[in-house]
Design a protein around this nucleic acid. Structure first.
Lengths: 119, 119
DNA sequence: ATTTTCACTTACTTTATGTAACCTATAATA
DNA sequence: TATTATAGGTTACATAAAGTAAGTGAAAAT
């Protein structure tokens, strides 16, 4: 009666990637190495608390690398490793699927909902 | 100073897919339409509570479809819609990436950790 | 008559995430 | 010189999401 179990590697990958913010952080880093505040500013509503947690997790997973440049005030950059870079095709699939299937509330809808508050 | 914002469709897709269990449920349904208990049994540690929540969410998103077959005792099946089926290439990418980059604790490691409890 | 299966739901606990303030160091501004 | 700003975080507390366990109702098998 039991069906074939899901591949444990697949399960692990999903476990890593589907924590909140993780995929978006990786996606953002596909643009190139970035500093803490740059990532923070690019992702609306992501707090520094969770960002620092996620960066640590991603580093432990070998998906990103943290580099300290010992300049006048130190500069710290986060960059994808090869393991991280190779998530690009996956991101591309999310992108394609979302382009085809996700519809956004239009700006006129937003105006509607603003109006509805006063109704 | 602000960099380009992440595409809102991409963000939405990630929001939908990265809730816990969601991706695994969709992956499981790629095998074909399935009943509640079949999905439940295929995903270790997924409780009926969360499964029923996720199925409702996925149905609202138009990713799965719930069909009631009015047999002697009714049979209820969950199946992917086209929107859901077209997540297959994404799943394939997760699968490829995980095959290349995820290493699993071997069974001997498991024995190790069992031993370590008694040390 | 009792137990089992399916498809869930409810009450309660634990974990994860969000919010806001704070910290240390350096640098820029008044 | 004193104040404010920026980078890269951490801490304490509040809320939301997920896990756990038990229960429900209808039908079916034992």
């Amino acid at each position: 009666m039991q069906r074939m179990q899901i591949c444990p590697r697949f399960e692990r990958a999903v476990e890593i990637l589907s924590k909140r913010w993780t995929t978006l952080i990786v996606y953002q880093l596909l643009e190139g190495p970035q500093r803490f505040v740059a990532i923070e500013n690019s992702l609306t509503n992501l707090s520094s608390k969770v960002l620092s947690e996620r960066l640590k997790e991603l580093e432990e997973e070998g998906i990103i690398e943290r580099t300290v440049y010992p300049e006048k005030p130190v500069r710290i950059e986060y960059a994808l490793t090869s393991k991280g870079q190779e998530l690009a095709p996956l991101m591309e699939q999310i992108s394609e699927w979302s382009t085809k299937w996700i519809e956004l509330p239009s700006e006129s809808d937003d105006l509607q909902s603003d109006k509805s508050k006063t109704e």
